[in-house]
Amino acid sequence: MSTDITSMDDLPTADFYAYESLLPDEERKILLKARDLVRDGIRPLVRDSWAEGELPAELIDALRGSGLSALAYEGYGEHPGAVSHLLGGMLALELSRTDASVATFFGVHDGLAFASIHHGGSQEQRDRWLPRMATMDTIGAFALTEPEGGSDVAAGMRTTARREGDTWVLDGAKKWIGNATFADVVVVWARDVEDDQVKGFVVEKGTAGFEPVKIEGKIALRIVQNAEITLTGVRVPEANRLQNVDSFRDVAEILRMTRSGVAWQSLGLMIGAYELALDYAKERVAFGRPIARFQLVQDLLVKSLGNITACWGMLVQLARLQDAGVFQDEHSSLAKAFVTARMREVVAWCREIFGGNGILLDHDIARFFADSEALYSYEGTREMNTLIVGKAITGQSAFV
């Protein structure tokens, strides 16, 4: 491990306790490569893309050529073995530090969609789809949430699957499905009408009856191409049903793994907001001096850094639990609930430092402020994750 700290000079300003030094040297090289990619290939694109609500091909191309996809899965990414959860988290942080939409696009493909096939599919299915998903020549999406069902979708999933010989017929609707307007494969979750259990199906682009429509008018994650999907008699072969998924418990296992990724994204978002505010405070002059010299501005910056440092420590330990194979639902739920709440505080304090300029897209902080609301809500609301932790610590379920 690269734990001998001889200088803080090559660490990000927000890494006040040198958490990056916990990465082995080889993994830190991967992180630095990602940082260069984000700076040179992604950051120049995000402001205009966010304003226009579009995901440019150049942005996907930058990620496609990065070698960052599938690093968490042994045998698929460019790294000889699966990287640590700590590096995986810091890579999510690095993307979100520049733009949460980019991190979300990547997380949907590399996390939710890839993980669904990797953990829920047969070896034949993994061999069929995952190599091209690892190179991002095939882009994936994950369709769980429904127009009338969010956190309660497990108990009230309305999308149905009906078997006819070697074919399944899917009917229903999904909403808020990232990447779905252009994805090559979409993992659709549906309730089997025969046994009332949730099953997973890989629906390939162009399948008849599968109609994704882009959701317009979003004030957050505007680069993410979210869709509302209508499924009308969508016929999927048995060969496209995920063979190792038998119930919603298997879906929950995938969500448990990816929920911690949202916590890392949220940490990245608050770091990005803090860095913008710190730079602005040093440059903005009021009453004849930089506002960084004002006590109240320093108070906002220090409170922000405190939240960042505390959340980073929590997520480092969560990654250690994941690497040890002992983490549970409640661990990722506490991280998601706590970190997103602290993120909300930080982006509000950082936007405040900008004053009136804080609502202008030209200064980027408005983008971070808006995007924080989406991260606060998705992958389980704070309330739902609180109840998961509450059940774990009291032994009593408060779910209705």
Rank of each mutant, 00 (worst) to 15 (best):
T104M: 15
F294R: 15
V185R: 04
L321M: 11
V83T: 15
V251Y: 12
G140T: 00
A392P: 12
E379C: 11
F16T: 13
Y378V: 06
C350A: 02
A277T: 13
V224H: 13
A286S: 09
L360C: 07
G150I: 04
F354Q: 07
R367F: 05
V297A: 11
G75K: 06
T135F: 06
G89I: 11
Q298M: 13
I219P: 06
G206A: 00
G111Y: 03
D152A: 07
I139Y: 15
S7T: 07
P24H: 13
E27Y: 06
D9T: 11
D48L: 14
S332D: 01
G140V: 00
Q197S: 14
F105D: 09
L112P: 02
K303F: 03
E74S: 04
D110G: 07
L170I: 15
D15Q: 09
D4C: 08
F105N: 14
L87N: 04
E26F: 13
F287A: 01
A92Q: 15
V389A: 12
E26N: 10
Y280C: 05
T167G: 08
R342L: 00
T104S: 09
T138C: 06
A51T: 01
W349I: 07
G209E: 03
I291G: 10
D195W: 11
M1L: 12
E275H: 00
V245M: 10
K336N: 05
F294G: 08
L231K: 09
D279S: 12
L255A: 02
Y76C: 11
A292V: 13
V326T: 08
G209D: 05
L269I: 05
E216V: 06
Q225N: 09
L87C: 03
I291W: 08
T381E: 02
V202C: 12
G306N: 15
Q243H: 10
R293G: 02
R39G: 02
A310M: 05
D192N: 14
I30V: 15
A100N: 07
G268W: 09
T386D: 12
F105Y: 15
Q298N: 15
K218E: 05
L45A: 12
G121W: 06
M136C: 01
G120C: 13
N226Y: 06
P131G: 06
M257Y: 03
M157D: 04
L130N: 04
A281P: 06
A220F: 07
D195I: 10
K29V: 10
V346C: 03
A370L: 01
Q123N: 09
K214R: 15
A143D: 01
A100Q: 14
G200N: 09
R35Y: 01
Y378W: 05
A190C: 04
F294T: 12
T381Q: 04
K218A: 05
L31G: 02
T309H: 05
G206K: 04
S66W: 06
S101P: 14
S397Q: 00
T3H: 09
A263S: 08
H363N: 13
A134V: 09
